[in-house]
């Protein structure tokens, strides 16, 4: 977005390194979520184990991004768009780390579900997964490309995800009443749904941070109107 280079080359390098680490963390988080959900849909415990193992690397990247961000604040005292980029990158990493935690929880629930015959109700989760992942990818894309319009458009989509989650939970609770033997399985699916709903919340946070980074506008806690 800002084509001019800083007079201090080391400042450019530090900002580029911070951005690369955020991108790498976003990539790993996306992979971890995909592995966890594939582990659930394809009943593959290895993929679940991989998703859980990814979390360690993502945690380390969060710490690295925080450290790099603080170093940049300390050494270069960034202002204006540079300051917003650094602050947003640090907030982004925190959201990504929590998303990866959701992937870990999903993977653990999936391993439990995989120990029993597959529940057809797992398909209730698929639209939520697709919606959450699309929000996630768009929010990160918006941040990377500093695309304010795309970022704003992500925010209202969280409502759809919440609706999908509510509908799925309602159906699963009905099934529990009809078939108490599968109670644990349905409960695990409800938890997976809740994790995806939280992924949507974090994607919304990232989109809001993307708007702040690119346009210096704080659109948090303003309802859907602010994002349109």
């Amino acid at each position: 977005m800002t084509p001019h280079r800083h007079i201090l080359g080391t400042f450019d390098e530090a900002l580029a390194s911070l951005r690369n680490n955020v991108l790498m963390m976003a990539g790993l988080t996306e992979r971890s979520l995909e592995r966890a959900m594939k582990g659930l849909f394809e009943r593959n415990d290895d993929l679940c184990a991989n998703a859980i193992a990814d979390d360690e690397e993502i945690d380390q990247l969060e710490k690295q991004i925080d450290k790099d961000g603080v170093d940049i604040l300390l050494r270069f005292q960034p202002v204006a768009s540079d300051l917003r980029r650094v602050v947003s990158a640090m907030k982004l990493s925190s959201n990504l780390e929590r998303m990866a935690d959701q992937a870990t929880t999903i993977a653990r629930r999936a391993r439990k579900l995989n120990q029993h015959p597959q529940l057809p109700e797992v398909e209730l989760i698929r639209p939520m997964y697709e919606h959450a992942m699309s929000m996630f990818k768009d929010s990160v894309d918006a941040f990377v490309r500093e695309d304010v319009d795309l970022a704003r458009a992500v925010v209202p989509r969280d409502q759809t995800l919440d609706d999908l989650n509510r509908a799925a939970s309602r159906t699963l609770i009905e099934r529990m009443a009809q078939d108490p033997d599968q109670l644990r399985g349905y409960l695990n699916l409800i938890f997976v749904g809740r994790c995806l709903e939280r992924v949507g919340d974090h994607a919304t946070n990232i989109a809001e941070d993307a708007v702040y980074a690119a346009a210096a506008e704080d659109i948090r806690h303003q309802g859907v109107a602010a994002s349109t």
């Binding site: 800002t2 800083h6 007079i7 400042f11 960034p78 202002v79 204006a80 768009s81 210096a216």
Partner: peptide, 19 residues
């Protein structure tokens, strides 16, 4: 001025991109 200047020249100067 130091968080979101209106002018590109201001932004370039205060962020050390000038010249």
């Amino acid at each position: 001025i130091f968080t979101n200047p209106n002018e590109r020249q201001t932004e370039d100067y205060i962020t050390g991109r000038f010249g």
